[in-house]
Design a protein around this nucleic acid. Sequence first.
DNA 1: GCCCCTCTAGAACAACGTACTAGTACCGGT
DNA 2: ACCGGTACTAGTACGTTGTTCTAGAGGGGC
Lengths: 240, 240
Amino acid sequence: MWLRESRAAREEPPLTRARIVGEAVALLDAEGIDGLTMRRLAERLGSGVTTLYWHVDTKIDVVDLALDAIFAETPLPAPAPDPDAWQADIVALLMDWRATMLRHPWSAALLQRPTLGPNLLARMEFLQATLVRAGFTGRRLNSATWALYNHLMGATVARAGFTLSAEDREAAQRRLHDLNDRYPTLSANDYMLQNDWDTTFTTGLTYVLNGITASPPTDGQPSEVGGEPATISRGPGWGG
Amino acid sequence: MWLRESRAAREEPPLTRARIVGEAVALLDAEGIDGLTMRRLAERLGSGVTTLYWHVDTKIDVVDLALDAIFAETPLPAPAPDPDAWQADIVALLMDWRATMLRHPWSAALLQRPTLGPNLLARMEFLQATLVRAGFTGRRLNSATWALYNHLMGATVARAGFTLSAEDREAAQRRLHDLNDRYPTLSANDYMLQNDWDTTFTTGLTYVLNGITASPPTDGQPSEVGGEPATISRGPGWGG
DNA sequence: GCCCCTCTAGAACAACGTACTAGTACCGGT
DNA sequence: ACCGGTACTAGTACGTTGTTCTAGAGGGGC
């Protein structure tokens, strides 16, 4: 029995990579990115500081692991029964993706490094597989994938970064109003008082999805149809 | 003459806020965000470290000032003569915006903090004023503004963060191929080998602009027309 | 009995942001 | 001619950070 207990302790040593990552997420949630310190992390784990370095090479590893770990909280959405409802699948995926990141606001600031964790790749796989199922291939597939991803990331980073208190926002808006001659539109439209991020996100998502859907998914020649990148230029070509 | 020289020196002391910010941008360009150190900055300026703190309250101030300073490099684009060509104005603005950030890649990682510098506000003013000129008001104006801003930021952050060497990208793609059963789509579509960020950006921008243009700009009741956020939900409503 | 492997932890180092303090040069007032 | 204040520079020092180096404890196999 003691042997068995000892073996159990052997298979689950008091300090594990998983335990470190879990506590790192908790610490990040509680104190933000600046609160994550190897010493504080060790303190919360009841271990020596340098012990962490046996399980992990560097602090960046901890951050990367924590970043991927939060995407294991939620399972991928179940694809809709109707195979034509690919847009619903994408909306479900992106809404959950955003919700996860906003549950851990520090993640938004960290996602600028290349994201190669298994859970993030799984989400990317789901996104692109859904688009493939909808008929996108080649360059169109690539553009659609990134357009959706960009909207998600831009909206979430903006949302997570705009953490001003209500008073601060009102003060900033008053300052905009004082600079009325320089920023008349921002002043008139209460730019700083924006607070309905959720509907802003979903409305923008419909824009992107509608734009993607309108551009036909590569049936036939992939380089001729309207909406090609070549139609964008600084000169004329727009506004017809 | 000596008096005059002395007065000139008086009006332009050896160390200026502007000179500090300029050197900070150069240092950030050369060595990235981790290379920006008060000591190294002082060294490059030929001054004592703590002297900086007379001109600037904290290091964050330096970063914020540098971040806004890069948007003074380029003037705002001249609005197109044709008033209906508002989309061309927006494209010109966003292309230049992105180009500026990619010229200083550290800026992408920093833009998660609320951006209230005068040059950034001027760009935001241009963007929203153009949309107002196109007829957008109220919620639609807000959604359109942020959809465009989100696309810009998402694309630029992704681009600036994906700085892997060609060999690293190929190695990562090989790893994806080895995990074929888990990421079949990413494996089959060379997800990691994406490198034409420019056309991906412009194509995505046409998607967003088309989606915005398709949704009518608040002529009449602002809450009834199609494309309302309420039409998005996890359940049915999509995929018709 | 001995060794190696897994795991823990203290001590120490270089580098960081910043506060405190002292000092220099110049200008206006008396 | 002196004095005080203002603009500006700079050295020293403190606490904190990530990380390396080194030492050591406990257990299984020869």
